[in-house]
Design a protein around this nucleic acid. Sequence first.
DNA 1: AAATATACGGAGAGTGTCTCCGTTTTGCAA
DNA 2: TTGCAAAACGGAGACACTCTCCGTATATTT
Lengths: 193, 193
Amino acid sequence: MVSVRADARRNRDRIVEVARGLFRAKGYDAVSMDEVAKAAEVGTGTLYRHFPTKEELYDAVLEAWADRVNGAVDRALSLDAPARERLLAWLRDFAGMLTEHKGAAARITAALGDASSPFAAKCQTYLGANERIIEGLASAVRPGVEAMQISRLVGGAAAVADSSDLSPDALASMLEIVADGLLVPEGANLADR
Amino acid sequence: MVSVRADARRNRDRIVEVARGLFRAKGYDAVSMDEVAKAAEVGTGTLYRHFPTKEELYDAVLEAWADRVNGAVDRALSLDAPARERLLAWLRDFAGMLTEHKGAAARITAALGDASSPFAAKCQTYLGANERIIEGLASAVRPGVEAMQISRLVGGAAAVADSSDLSPDALASMLEIVADGLLVPEGANLADR
DNA sequence: AAATATACGGAGAGTGTCTCCGTTTTGCAA
DNA sequence: TTGCAAAACGGAGACACTCTCCGTATATTT
């Protein structure tokens, strides 16, 4: 009983590789499954046996993301800079990863609360990353701020930037506003709130 | 010159009315044009002559919005409350209108920079409203904040809340973060309270 | 080499948006 | 009132998607 036939593995790998290229070039929505099948030189039936939905295919395309996400958190937290800069470094990376493939930010962000989504594992990674950020920045973060809120706010901003083809600068300026909303104001007395 | 035939006007009005009911009940994406045509008892050809795209139909469904938007601005600005409360009152109304029909927030927000969108006029209304808010709250708003940024941030948050079926409270808590990011931190400027 | 489990591939079902064009209705004019 | 263009109607169907079914081909085992 050999678990996986050799041709199956070969096809699967080629599909993922080809799909990654297409998604990167054209964005999620603009790539059809027929197109992926044709480019990978398999029948649509084969494609759909390996990946029952387009989202599951996309999930397979994003493989090393957990590492990349956690790496970005490490990098941001280890910066020798004020909390605002460290937070912004992370938010920019976070948003950057979400907008890496056109059309993906909205999808991934929408899956944040959905445990049955193919992206559920990725979402957990994001939530965990934002939890680490909250902990890492400690008292610089306003009390009551939750990882889910950060994920949703940044995901929402990234989705808008993505769908409107905003420049990285325009997105960054939105992230600055979010960052200011997340952090305790400098020099202000928090007890008032 | 009787520009419009009576049957045409009757059909158009009935289509808009029926479509509004369907969009409200099921959300933008879940309503098909065939469904609208059937419910309005016209052929699809008739539907499409009146509204060449689904978005144009949706635009016709949102008719009195300019007034509603400006009314919400007036109401918020005339509140006898701190700047943060007045801003939040507006943001909640703004987000509430965007999430009125499921699936609409993302579409409308994505159109913010697109002059050729059917929603362009609505977007201008929103931008103008946010400009009025910035002016109305005067020095309580952080310098450099633009109406477009507010529109996009709130639109993004509303789109996420919409696609994830968040509770109004969850959305409100996100808006509070945005509000804190938009306003000069308390203690730095008490004049406007 | 035969047998069997596994994978392949592509036609086509189902569902959308939107178009084309023959038919019907309407409003004006004689 | 009746006739006649112009305007509007309606629905079949083109086209694009995602995804399914199932007969055929291939890999692995014995």
